[in-house]
Structure formats: structure tokens, C-alpha cells
Nucleic acid binder design. Structure first.
Lengths: 258, 258
DNA sequence: ACAAAAGTGTTAACCGTACACCCATGA
DNA sequence: TCATGGGTGTACGGTTAACACTTTTGT
């Protein structure tokens, strides 16, 4: 066995020697959600060799906790740390294999290379603040960017179903996790928060009832300032109250969006 | 590489050559729930060499869907097929490794044998009809039997937390899956069903409200017969109405137990 | 006859939903 | 001044939670 640095130093070494660094047959795929301009978006990569789209993903180092691997992967694609991540499902069909999807790795990954084998992938979704994220392609991709969840193209392998399942999981999570803190800027208006929930749930909500539901969680702080500049009446700005927020999370909150 | 039959033919071959048959670093652990005598129980194994307790588990064959592997594992430990199974979480801490828990495989598994490596395990819970299950130890265990969930001993590795998380997941699932069909005998009384829910939720429920909630799902059929023999007033027998049951599951039912 | 368990119905509290009015702002 | 969006409050209806009485059965 050859010398074993912490990370592969080239694509070639990665393809040839990946098993030295990573657990074989195992990957992580991340559905990174962002919210911008009234739309829910996810981070997608476009592969350099085939122009196909896929979810950002990666592998698990031999002594690395799986959760840490997910954190690392999101960091590598967005430059962001301290991200809210949730594991939602492990996908284990034997057809999850690059060869079966007519996918080839670039520049001659050997057909029996570790990366062409069957992979079981653990799905995580992540919430990031759109404006702070800097999408960075990985070594196999020509671009990394935000795509509106309503306009997802065909993705490789079973990545479309992974994305679907992530979205389902996110919807359910609205009831025990107030996603606004992670997806919006520090200060935001009630209509903005509502729009966020509406795009996640893909349905219209009543303005007044929404406000009551959210405020009843008692995790928001209304600021004196109002949002200036928009047409029409200026909405108040809100911010999550750090202390109350942590307390509520610890106690476990329960909303009922559906 | 040697000849590759479908399964290892001995414990020795299993320990030495397991990677020929199974995906390395990956396992499945199953929390098999049963209900008997008014108590919620889980299937546990006692290891022959150390007398420690653990959850029934197993490995994934190279071309086997993960879900199928879980089905196979439950079948091997209970003799039952067509079991309701749900994947609930993947546990991926690097300390999940037999060496780190002072665990040795019997009869000289080599320290660097595949089975001593780090494992990521995918957790499933299963619901089985207690009276039909025939607990069968695996090749490493001296016994396989039912243990009351309130009396779980210390288990190997992180199996205690796996069990906890399975129970949490089961509780949440009460709201979209009527577990009674799988856990009770074909005919059962309303008090029995209530007791089942109470032990899962670990709280008392109101008799009358419980009955209303359950009946409002419209998946039960009340039989003319009553349960004879008990002291006190004879309760009616119920049975799940196969057609209505399937329909309700397809439409997606929604209760609110908590 | 009595205790214990089971069947059934009623009421009050709460919550989700629907809805109306007023106000601020830029065009 | 008008259209649009935002802030606020109320009333209805359905669901959940609390609760009481009667019936059956074995002792």
C-alpha cells in the first residue's frame, strides 16, 4: 500500500486510490436548499463530461463521522459552515451504480474502479442563507448553481427521487423546525417568511392566520424599523430572538403546517 | 479470488471471506417490535461469547436492495415474511466498530477482519405478530428472544440509541400508519388496541376518545362476537377491514396521537 | 350485591379557517 | 386618487379533551 496523505492530491489518484481515503460503496448526497427572490432553490452541479445534472455529493473518510462528512460536503460546495443539516433517508437500490446509468467518470476511470461500483447513499438536506453561499463546482463539474425547485431538470441516477424525498422531509420538518432562521437574512418581513412557507408547501396560505401561527411560537422579535423602498405600505421587520429560539427548539415546538 | 457461492458456508468462511458476499462497512440493524400480554417487546439476541445483548442485524449482499436485506434479516430471526418494515435512520459514527467496544468475534476473527472494521448501519424497525414469530438466534448468538421495551438491558455499541430512535420513529408513525394490523392477532378488542397505543406512547389515553379517534379512521369492522372468558363485561371483537384498510393507506390517513 | 371493566353520549375548550376593515405607499 | 399590499381583529365551525352514566360479568 502506498503512502496515505489526508486527501487525494489529484483526480487521477482520487479515481484510482479512492478506497484508501473513503469508505467504499458509500456516498452522501446533499439537497441544499436556499431561498431567493421568492423562490425555493436547490444547489445542483453540472458534470463536465456529459453535461448531466446531479446533486452535490461526496464520500465518507475512513475515520470521519457521517454527519461530519455531510457538513464537509456542504462546506466544499458553498463555503459555509454551521449549517443546519438533517439526514432524511438512505437510498440502497443496487441499480445505484454509475455504469448502469451510462455514466462514465472523466478521463478514464477504469470500469472496475471503486467509483463505478454500487453505491448506497445517505441523503441529507441542508438549509443555507442564499446570499452568503458561494456555489463552487467539484472536480467533476463545470458548474454549480441554484435551480428553482419547480424547474429541476432530469438528474443522474435516482437523484430526482432523492430530491423529491428531501422536499417531503422538509415539509414535514416545518412542524418542528422553524426553517426561516436558516433560509432568510437576519432581518426579514412577515410576507417574506410567508412566501418561504408557501413555496416549500407549494400552496397559498392565509396572511392573517399565518402571522398568528408563527407569532404564537414566540420566537420572533418585531423590530421598530420597517422595510423601506418597496411599493405600497412598509412591512415591519422581524428577527429571530436568539434566546427564545434556542429555548423553543430545546423544548420542542409543534406547529401544524400541511 | 476463490469460488463464490451465494452464501458463506461456515462461520469461518463468513469471518474470513465476508467481503465476497457482503458490502463492507455496511450493516443493517432491525428493531423488531411485538406486542404480547399488554406489553410492547423487541427482539434481542444474546451473543454466545460475551453474553452481551444486541439487536438483530446483518449485512447487505452485493447485488441485493437494502430493503430486501432488511426483509431477509427479519425473516431469518422470526421465520416471518410480508412484514411491515420502515427504514428510520443511518448511524454513522466512526466508533461503531467492534474493536472499540471490546467486542471480539468468536473463534478468532482476525483483528483486521472485515467484521472488525468500522460499520455504518442502517436502522429499520419492523412490526410482527408476536404469536406467529419464532425467534431464531443467529450463528453468533446463544439466544434470541423478546424483551419488554421497559426492561432493555445494556446493548453493544450504540444499539441502545438505535432502539431509542426506533421507538421515537414508531411513535410518530402512529399518525400515518395504523400499527394494530401488524402487531395484533386478526381479531382483537378495543381495549387491547388501546393498550397497544398506550404502551407505544407510554401514556394513558382516554377510553372513549381513543375509540372515537380509531373508529373515525373507518378501517375497523366490528364483529358480532364478543370476547368470552375474561372477568367483567365482554368487549366486542374487531378486525381490520382489508379493503377499507388498503384504501385508507393509499389515500394517506392522518391521526393525531402524541 | 359489588367491584371492575366495557359500551355509549354530551359538553366545553380550543384551534384552524374564513373573512372585512383600515392604513400606508408609490405610481 | 387609486391600486396594491400590509397591519389588525372577529366570528364560525370542527376537532379534541374532559367527563358521567349505564351495562355486563365473575366473585
Amino acid at each position: 500500500m502506498k503512502k496515505n496523505p489526508a486527501f487525494p492530491t489529484s483526480i487521477e489518484e482520487f479515481l484510482e486510490q479512492g478506497e484508501q481515503y473513503y469508505l467504499p460503496h458509500l456516498s452522501i448526497d446533499c439537497v441544499v436548499f436556499g431561498f431567493h427572490d421568492g423562490h425555493l432553490k436547490v444547489l445542483l452541479l453540472q458534470l463536465s463530461n456529459t453535461n448531466e445534472w446531479c446533486l452535490p455529493g461526496g464520500f465518507i473518510q475512513h475515520t470521519e463521522p457521517v454527519d461530519d462528512a455531510a457538513v464537509r460536503i456542504v462546506f466544499q460546495r458553498t463555503g459555509l459552515r454551521n449549517i443546519y443539516l438533517r439526514q432524511f433517508y438512505a437510498f440502497g437500490d443496487p441499480s445505484r451504480q454509475r455504469g448502469k446509468d451510462k455514466l462514465q467518470m472523466p478521463k478514464g476511470a477504469k470500469p472496475n474502479s471503486w467509483i463505478m461500483k454500487r453505491f448506497i447513499t445517505i441523503g441529507y438536506w441542508a438549509l443555507v442563507e442564499f446570499s452568503k453561499a458561494v456555489p463552487i463546482p467539484d472536480q467533476f463539474s463545470s458548474q454549480c448553481g441554484w435551480v428553482n425547485v419547480t424547474k429541476i431538470p432530469r438528474l443522474i441516477l435516482d437523484h430526482n427521487s432523492i430530491l423529491d424525498k428531501a422536499l417531503q422531509s422538509l415539509r414535514i420538518s416545518l412542524n418542528d423546525y422553524p426553517v426561516g432562521k436558516d433560509l432568510l437574512t437576519e432581518k426579514f418581513t412577515m410576507p417574506e417568511l410567508q412566501r418561504l412557507y408557501e413555496t416549500i408547501l407549494n400552496k397559498k396560505l392565509d396572511r392573517r392566520n399565518f402571522q398568528k401561527q408563527i407569532l404564537s411560537l414566540e420566537i420572533l422579535e418585531r423590530l421598530k424599523e420597517k422595510k423601506q423602498g418597496g411599493a405600497h405600505k412598509s412591512p415591519f421587520l422581524y428577527r429571530f430572538d436568539g434566546r427564545k429560539y434556542q429555548l423553543a427548539l430545546k423544548k420542542g415546538l409543534r406547529a401544524s403546517f400541511a
